[in-house]
Computed example of a mutant assay.
Amino acid sequence: MDATRLIAVAMERAEELPGSERENPFGPEWDVYKVRGKVFLLIPLDDTGRVTLKSHPDDAVALRETFADIVPGYHMNKKHWITLLPGPSLEDELVTELITESYRLVVEKLPKARRPVDPAVFGIRREDDPR
């Protein structure tokens, strides 16, 4: 996956998530996606094509060991964040799933009254779902 495609897939998925908002708190060089004020995705608007997102610590280790294009979170807590780099080991579906999981991790920490979705069931594909 090249840099342009990686960023396009990431932005498309982030923008369709309930309650997701794009902001630029670090200036115009970064698009930051938040849900109810909490960050779940960072995209620098430079030529690197990388995206940084939240990950469960155990998953982060496994992902970094499995995919050459997934590294510790750039300028973030290396235990809870990963960075996706353009490269051949990433596919659209994986990027979409990782962004959905990042979003779910943030939503589940929100007070129940502020959650835009139920994180226990959001984004989980059922066996009978034809998609």
Results as ranks from 00 to 15, higher is better:
14 A>L: 07
37 G>H: 11
16 E>Y: 02
38 K>D: 04
105 L>Y: 02
31 D>T: 03
101 E>G: 08
55 S>Y: 00
85 L>V: 14
33 Y>V: 02
36 R>W: 00
8 A>S: 15
46 D>P: 11
89 S>F: 14
50 R>N: 11
29 E>P: 00
95 V>S: 12
127 E>Q: 12
95 V>Y: 14
112 K>P: 05
103 Y>N: 11
129 D>A: 12
114 R>W: 05
103 Y>W: 13
93 E>C: 02
92 D>G: 02
131 R>W: 09
16 E>K: 14
30 W>G: 01
45 L>A: 00
16 E>I: 08
29 E>G: 07
114 R>Y: 05
22 R>V: 06
62 A>T: 12
71 V>W: 02
79 K>Y: 02
61 V>D: 02
5 R>K: 09
61 V>E: 07
38 K>E: 08
66 T>P: 03
23 E>Q: 10
25 P>Y: 11
82 I>Y: 05
95 V>K: 13
131 R>H: 10
46 D>H: 11
124 I>E: 07
65 E>D: 10
2 D>M: 04
45 L>E: 09
130 P>D: 05
88 P>T: 15
18 P>E: 09
120 A>D: 14
50 R>F: 03
48 T>I: 01
22 R>N: 01
121 V>E: 13
73 G>V: 13
73 G>H: 13
76 M>Q: 15
12 E>I: 04
29 E>H: 06
64 R>M: 15
68 A>T: 09
42 L>K: 01
33 Y>Q: 02
37 G>C: 08
126 R>A: 09
38 K>Y: 02
2 D>R: 09
67 F>Y: 15
43 I>P: 06
35 V>T: 12
4 T>H: 10
41 L>C: 06
108 E>L: 06
7 I>Q: 11
110 L>V: 12
24 N>G: 00
30 W>D: 01
108 E>A: 00
25 P>D: 06
35 V>A: 03
74 Y>V: 03
